[in-house]
Amino acid sequence: MPHIPLPEHLPGITGLLEYRLDTALPIRELTQILLRGESTLSPGERELIAALVSFRNETRFCTAAHTKAADLLLGENETAWAVKQNFETAPISEKMKALLAIAALTQKSGKAVTPEAIERARLAGATDSEIHDTVLITALFCLYNKYVDGLASVTPTDPAYYQRLGERITRGYLRPEGGFPVPPKP
């Protein structure tokens, strides 16, 4: 049960963002820029970062949502699962492995990121912008994970919910004009 009253039809982060539209706006805009804006990393690769961080933070809602988004954007269901199990052996590029290693270190503590981790990413072909965005996406999802868990937002268990949510967030993170309609009572 959430620690504060939230819209019942909007579980997870969505209800929290609707609770405070003024604070939600800059967070949504930053997420839109980082995960859907121009980048040399694909939207699917950026969703892998979000899924890994959420998984390592043990935030079930965000893990399920961003795993599904990554699956949809990548067009398959194996890579995100493999990344969460062990990104070093996952079927991804060496550059993504190095960037996910930076994400894993950042998730523990920003101070855990070492010059060696950065050098590994650069040697694998990562740009400074990709390194920057990896750290910022990780920090943003640590914020989201703490937000969702700290206020005990509702975490649906139905996989169909995450299919619909994944489809929505593959299109972007900005609030739909007019908000989220309340479904009719059965």
Results as ranks from 00 to 15, higher is better:
M1Q: 14
P2E: 06
H3Y: 14
L6C: 03
E8W: 09
H9Q: 08
L16E: 01
L17Y: 09
L17S: 10
Y19A: 13
R20F: 13
R20P: 05
D22A: 03
T23N: 13
L25M: 13
I27L: 15
I27K: 13
L30T: 15
T31Q: 04
T31G: 02
Q32M: 06
Q32N: 08
L34P: 11
R36T: 13
G37V: 09
G37N: 06
S39I: 06
T40F: 12
S42H: 01
S42E: 00
P43W: 01
G44L: 01
G44V: 00
R46Q: 04
L48D: 06
A50C: 05
L52R: 03
T59R: 14
R60W: 08
F61T: 01
C62R: 11
A65S: 09
L73R: 14
L73K: 11
L74Q: 11
G75L: 02
G75K: 12
E76I: 05
E78G: 14
E78A: 15
T79H: 07
A80C: 03
A82C: 07
A82P: 09
V83W: 00
V83C: 03
K84A: 09
A90H: 06
I92T: 09
E94F: 05
E94M: 12
E94K: 09
K97T: 01
L99P: 08
A101R: 11
A103Q: 06
A103R: 10
A103F: 06
A104C: 10
L105F: 05
T106R: 14
Q107W: 06
S109W: 10
S109G: 13
S109D: 15
G110H: 13
K111F: 12
K111W: 13
K111Y: 10
K111R: 11
K111L: 14
K111P: 06
V113M: 04
V113K: 08
T114I: 04
P115S: 14
P115H: 12
I118K: 11
I118V: 15
E119Y: 03
E119L: 15
R120C: 11
R120F: 11
A124D: 07
G125D: 14
G125W: 06
A126E: 03
T127P: 11
T127E: 13
S129N: 11
E130A: 09
I131L: 09
H132K: 10
L143S: 10
K146G: 09
L151A: 07
A152P: 08
A152D: 12
T155I: 08
A160V: 12
Y161H: 12
Y161L: 03
Y162H: 08
Q163Y: 13
R164S: 11
L165C: 01
L165R: 03
G166K: 03
E167H: 13
E167K: 12
R168I: 05
G172L: 00
R175M: 12
P176K: 08
G179F: 08
P181V: 02
P181I: 00
P183T: 02
P183M: 04
P184V: 02
K185L: 15
K185C: 08
P186G: 14
